[in-house]
């Protein structure tokens, strides 16, 4: 299936590039001369007086700094990478997280449908999304926007996406937007380092460790789907979702772009995204586009669906319909 075929790129990533039999740290150290960023880490990891834990932390951070692009990692490298994240979290906090790197299942292409007739503007989806995906609480980052529109026209220009009153308001209806996981994504095309790409199951993801924070993808997205960490993101330990995926809701750093991943940590495990599960009206429908018996396929067959800004040719896998 052409959509699932990915070209293997010529990149290796530093770890992939270096000879296997060379000790990774030694190799990394030789490279590091020009890079000021690692200097502090190097000092700590070489400091005999530092505690073993802080030395381990420094070493893991050091390795993380030099890790290659996730998409090009071997299975072992992926495992090593997620173990490192788990260990780092354990060293920095008191408790553990679970990070997976579950791959796409062959024969699956995710699609989403939004029932405009049903949405009542409750924003339960937004709340669930924030909790599920460990979004920065300080900046109140949100992936989903719910636009309150007046009857008579579908006009985002005249919609209000910051309403706070009893809903549904008389004479109004509601349209949610988020990442549409375009099949021909304009955002991934422009990334200068391929830190963002479309997975074989159609989910557009970001490797937060590879993103250099140029924000070209944000300029390229016609749907305002991408968010940037303008400062260190803050998630209280008590509110942390510990079930994480490397390409999904694991904790981000400042200076990187993030976005909706159809809750990759849930969907790849067979679950529905948090927004779908949280919606009390059933306005949100999620499933496998390649399964003719899926609900999403039923909607595409039986409802008059449309997508937003179809003229741009991004081919969103996110359809709207009415009852």
């Amino acid at each position: 299936m052409s959509v699932n075929s990915f070209r293997i790129l010529n990149n290796k990533g530093i770890e992939q590039l270096l000879e296997r039999n060379v000790d990774r740290r030694t190799a990394a150290l030789t490279m590091a001369g020009a890079l000021a960023a690692g200097a502090g880490l190097a000092a700590t990891s070489a400091n005999p007086f530092a505690s073993s834990e802080s030395r381990e932390k420094a070493r893991l951070n050091w390795d993380a700094y030099f890790q290659g692009n996730f998409r090009l990692m071997t299975e072992e490298e992926k495992t090593e990478t997620v173990r490192r994240l788990e260990r780092l979290h354990q060293l920095q906090n008191t408790d553990r997280i679970r990070v997976t790197a579950l791959d796409a299942v062959p024969g699956v292409l995710y699609g989403y449908a939004f029932n405009i007739s049903k949405c009542r503007g409750y924003m339960d989806c937004v709340r669930a999304c924030i909790a599920e995906n460990n979004q920065d609480r300080r900046s109140a980052m949100q992936y989903i926007r719910v636009h309150e529109m007046e009857h008579g026209q579908i006009s985002f220009e005249h919609a209000d996406d910051a309403y706070f009153h009893e809903v549904p308001a008389a004479g109004h209806f509601y349209v949610g937007t988020q990442c549409f996981h375009c099949q021909n994504p304009p955002c991934t095309q422009v990334c200068p380092v391929q830190a963002t790409w479309m997975e074989p199951d159609g989910i557009v993801v970001v490797d937060y460790n590879w993103c250099i924070g140029c924000r070209y993808c944000m300029a390229a997205c016609p749907y305002d789907a991408r968010r940037f960490n303008w400062a260190d993101p803050v998630v209280p330990e008590a509110e942390l979702n510990r079930n994480q995926h490397y390409l999904g809701n694991r904790l981000r750093q400042k200076g990187v772009v993030e976005k909706c991943t159809f809750c990759i940590q849930r969907s790849r495990a067979g679950g529905n995204p948090a927004c779908v599960e949280a919606c009390p009206t059933g306005a949100r429908i999620f499933g496998n586009l390649l399964d003719p018996d899926s609900e999403i396929r039923w909607v595409l067959r039986n409802k008059k669906v449309f997508r937003l800004k179809e003229d741009l040719g991004a081919e969103p896998k996110f359809w709207y319909f009415t009852d």
């Binding site: 009542r120 409750y122 309403y163 009153h165 009893e166």
Partner: peptide
């Protein structure tokens, strides 16, 4: 009808 789940 009710209030949204998150504040403005």
């Amino acid at each position: 009808s009710r209030w949204p789940a998150i504040p403005r």
